[in-house]
Amino acid sequence: MLATGFRSSFRATASSPPRDSAPIRASASTTSDGCSRSKVSLSEDLRNELAAIAPRSECDRLAELSGLFHSAGSVHLRGRGAVAVHLDVADSAVARRAFSLLRAFGVASEIRTYQRRAFHGATRYQLHIAGDERALQVLHEAGVLSARLTPLSAPPRRVVARACCRGAYLRGALLGGASLSGPRAPHLELRSAEPEGADFVARLAAEEGVNLRVADRGRHAIAYAKGVDAIEGVLALAGAGRSVLVFEESTVLAATRSRANRLANADHANLVRTSRAAHEQLRAIQRLRRTGAFVKLPPQLQEIGELRERHPTFSLRELALTCRPPTTKAAAHRRLQKLQQLAAI
């Protein structure tokens, strides 16, 4: 049984719902305003992907519920020790997911919608959870509320003791308050009401080998990553394989494009060097002809000189194959160098 005492040393939002809020049925196939657009942001794609992942065990469901409420939840004081908890999310898919998680634990909730005054009046979704005994017990087990019904900035260790639970918690945090952009300028943020909550997310990711940084923005704190490797690590831990592939595909394309550019630049540089070398070789041959020394040269040197005059754009390999009999690239190079040395005397 949870104690009913309550302390006020925490952030709490106003207890009155938005004026334009209206309940909706959880089974409705409503989609968010963002999903109806032709271009869906990476953040929306990520939330839709994660919302379709079913937790395999009860501990995963509890950890995911904890991540959701720590990133997007608020506790409301009703007076005389009464408590209500709200969850405010951006997508209907996330709202339905939270509704299903709560229902799996026998907790009743109601989904309502309201229009934001900013951001072009985007639709938001709120889950209203009455503070009955069962709801408070589940939220305590999930590490959202303490035994005295005060909000916890981070859940206790028992909620995220296993690797699967840590992944589920990160999934809940991504569903509730994450922003993802990229892949050209990759950036991932996981929002928390308090710096302690952001620190907890960063420590959780570090346990799985992923490095996140923490920043306090006054009204909220974030755990964030800007590198592709760290972002892919967080997404993989949460089970967002499709979103990971988006970043990996971009990395592969960038590497392929860079390699193609390097090869093109190398080919251009080789052509420039070949052209300059052929020009110097032709000048040497012309000098030898003017002095009458060319006709006195050994047959092999005369042959390579005549081939260079006949084929000024040929590479050394092509000149070597044109010789009779064909010779090696190194041999053709030595013969041309000999012509240049004789012309310089």
Rank of each mutant, 00 (worst) to 15 (best):
A54L: 12
S250Y: 15
I231T: 12
D229N: 13
R289K: 15
S8H: 12
Q300G: 00
P299C: 01
R157G: 07
S32V: 02
A202Y: 09
N265L: 14
K296E: 15
T291G: 13
H279N: 00
V244D: 12
L342G: 06
R287W: 03
S38A: 14
S57A: 14
G305I: 09
L180I: 12
R56M: 10
F6G: 01
A108T: 03
G241K: 09
L175E: 08
R262I: 01
H140C: 11
S57C: 08
A266G: 00
L245T: 14
A82V: 06
G305H: 09
A264N: 09
A343S: 15
L127K: 03
A108V: 01
G79D: 03
L102E: 08
A54N: 12
P183E: 12
R242T: 11
A54R: 14
L253K: 10
A135Q: 05
A147E: 10
T113H: 09
A225V: 08
A332R: 06
A90W: 06
R262S: 04
L188R: 04
L149Q: 15
H311R: 13
D88I: 12
L180Y: 11
L149F: 03
H140V: 01
A12Y: 06
D91V: 00
R290C: 08
P55E: 10
S74A: 10
S27V: 08
G233I: 07
A198S: 15
S109T: 08
R334Y: 07
V107C: 02
E133N: 11
A108W: 03
L42I: 05
R162I: 04
L2E: 11
Q286L: 09
S8C: 07
A90I: 02
T291P: 01
Q126Y: 02
A3L: 13
E141G: 01
A84R: 14
A12N: 03
F247L: 11
F314T: 00
R276V: 11
L101P: 07
T31I: 14
R317G: 14
V85L: 15
N261H: 08
G167Y: 08
R166G: 05
F10A: 05
E248V: 05
A277D: 10
V144A: 01
R47M: 11
R324N: 11
S21P: 00
L319N: 09
R262Y: 00
H70V: 06
E309H: 05
C165M: 08
R78F: 00
D60P: 00
V107Q: 03
A63L: 05
S192W: 04
R171Q: 11
S29Y: 01
F99S: 15
S38W: 13
L336G: 07
T150R: 08
I222P: 01
P18N: 10
A14P: 06
G143P: 07
A284S: 14
H268R: 15
P23W: 01
A215F: 04
E110L: 07
S100N: 12
A14N: 13
A240K: 06
P325I: 06
V210L: 04
L307K: 04
H140Y: 13
L50V: 03
L42K: 11
L102G: 05
I304Q: 07
